[in-house]
Design a binder for these strands. Structure first.
Lengths: 198, 198
DNA sequence: AATAGAACCGGACTACGGTCCGTTTAGTCT
DNA sequence: AGACTAAACGGACCGTAGTCCGGTTCTATT
């Protein structure tokens, strides 16, 4: 993905770089025009003027493509809760950070909607997304910091993040008219009880 | 699905009934032989000696088929927590019933594994499963009964049941070696804190 | 029993994600 | 420059879920 990341990254070939740019640009166009569900791998290949094999070489799968498209904003979100200002970033009490984490995640999911959904389709991949492991650990750390006693904090963190599942959140918003504010309030309530009850 | 269910159920034609039985039997055979992922709609049609269109007429989709196959055991589970003996059924304190509900659900999901997973693939269908709505209401009722104060009990019930997502549970069991007992303990801890903190 | 029409049947067809492998091309080394 | 190698390329190909429609079979009505 990012050349220069590893110690022995073998330098991306120029034609590959050109095609990657074309593909990403074409993908953004298609999503603007037809929505995320209108983006098929065949159409993308045709639009970008490359073969279908090239698309899969780049991104591995449709989910991988979506992940790439989300990469920027996803990375921004991560650095915000890892290094950013409180209450999301370090410096605030753990409970406040937990509440902020959920609130921001809800806003993120609601904003990017279909894209997030499409990124987690791969039946096997729904829990292999590297970001998911990071969130889990982050929440686990905050639980420990909040003196979360007894029981396995890692499992509890998984339960809490499961609550933020994009499919669920978007379903509630779109089919039941639930607002982001209500979701955030419910999250606050949940984590407050979980942390407070320890 | 079940003839005679509705007030004006137009009586299933005999050939349709015969084919339905053949299909269900063939589906069970195929799952025994190849596992749930080895059951394709084409193979099923061939095995049952009917056309592919017939399969889709009966079940609507692959997820619908899986739901049909699960129907019996699912119905048994439902009647157990609706009418069965305590602590799962009525008669026990709400918190005990909540704990029992999660424990039993976890056991159910781990037992039926792939089948449950296959039943909820349909991206749109993951929350349209009628049973899901029932569980949600059941948990909501128990929360209210436990004097769950402040915040929306329906949303909180949704959060709690999201925790029991089959994909998540099976991932933990299969990829991380978590046991049903650990999952049940985590669930007990979660609901205890949620109810206790109200 | 004959008839009409609804329900059912089958399998060809489409769209899609993903794989494969023979061909081409960008870098590198002499 | 010329040759060599590894990587990238492209599009034919596959398996799958789901749709469609012309032909067939059942059931109700008379």
């Amino acid at each position: 993905m990012r050349p220069g990341t590893g110690p022995a990254a073998p330098a991306e070939r120029s034609d590959a770089a050109r095609n990657r740019e074309r593909l990403v640009a074409a993908a953004r166009e298609l999503i603007d025009e037809c929505g995320a569900e209108g983006l098929t791998m065949d159409r993308l290949a045709e639009r970008a003027g490359v073969g279908k094999g090239t698309v899969f070489r780049r991104f591995g799968s449709r989910a991988g493509l979506m992940l790439t498209l989300l990469n920027e904003s996803e990375a921004a979100f991560q650095s915000r809760f890892l290094f950013g200002p409180p209450p999301l970033g370090p410096g605030a009490p753990a409970l406040d950070r937990l509440v902020a984490f959920g609130t921001e995640r809800i806003a993120y999911v609601v904003a990017y909607g279909d894209l997030v959904l499409a990124a987690e389709v791969a039946s096997r991949g729904r829990f292999e997304v590297p970001a998911a492991a990071l969130w889990n650990r982050h929440v686990e750390m905050l639980l420990r910091e909040a003196r979360f006693g007894s029981s396995d904090p890692w499992l509890m963190a998984g339960s809490l993040t499961a609550t933020l599942d994009p499919g669920r959140l978007l379903h509630l918003v779109r089919e039941h008219g639930v607002t982001s504010a209500q979701l955030a309030a419910s999250w606050r309530d949940l984590v407050t009880r979980v942390v407070g009850g320890g």
